[in-house]
């Protein structure tokens, strides 16, 4: 039990996937202008990341390693993720057109969200992780991603009203705020 707790604390706070491991920066900067879209993105990422990690873990163990095909890892993993995203897109279009409209072009971008592939590769590469640990790891990282992007979107909503020097408007000031947020998250270091 303690082990799973540690996976969660470590992935969400100490080694936050966005702020410490630099994965998933594109959506972190791209869809964080409004909290509502950030929440939607988090939902989509959580879903894809968890399923992708389960599927790729099984593939890694029962196909790639078994038949000595580990060199095909990157190709297989990205194909699994790309098909999953396509599936989520089709389902979302049917179930919630409003959310689909809000996430717009960012849903296909989950394919190129390195957080998803990154977590899949990390769990497959960790010899200590069984299927359950990998699943937990994926969920924990998705929560970590969500926490970072939602906090950040809250900050950016306030930033809209701040008097920022002309040259720093947009991406530069957003990155500096992200840096300060990362600094705050460093305070969790050593927890796990």
């Amino acid at each position: 039990m303690a082990q799973y707790f540690l996976i969660f604390i470590s992935a969400i706070f100490v080694n936050n996937i966005v702020l410490a491991k630099f994965l998933g920066i594109c959506p972190f900067l791209g869809v964080s202008k409004k909290t509502s879209t950030a929440i939607g993105m988090t939902g989509a990422v959580t879903f894809v990341m968890t399923i992708a990690t389960i599927v790729t873990w099984l593939l890694q163990k029962y196909v790639l390693v078994k038949y000595d095909l580990v060199f095909l890892q990157t190709v297989t993993f990205i194909l699994v993720i790309a098909s999953l995203v396509q599936m989520v897109e089709i389902i979302l279009k049917k179930v919630s057109p409003s959310l689909y409209a809000a996430l717009g072009i960012f849903l296909p971008l989950i394919t190129t969200n390195c957080a998803v592939l990154g977590v899949a590769l990390l769990s497959a590469g960790n010899a200590d992780f069984g299927l359950l640990q990998s699943t937990m790891f994926a969920i924990a990282n998705a929560i970590g991603f969500g926490l970072a992007i939602i906090i950040f979107s809250g900050l950016r909503e306030h930033l809209e009203f701040a008097d920022v020097p002309e040259g720093m408007k947009g991406a530069p000031v957003a990155l500096i705020v992200a840096g300060i947020l990362a600094l705050a998250f460093m305070g969790f270091a050593g927890l796990a």
Binding site: L19, A20, F22, G167, M168, A171, P172, V173, A174, L175, I176, A178, G179, I180, A182, L183, M186
Partner: peptide
């Protein structure tokens, strides 16, 4: 040290982008 660590990466990139824009 902060510039080798994660926060420094964001901050340094932020300033470089501002300069490039200029």
């Amino acid at each position: 040290l902060v510039f080798v660590l994660a926060p420094g990466a964001f901050i340094a990139l932020g300033y470089i982008i501002a300069i490039t824009n200029k």
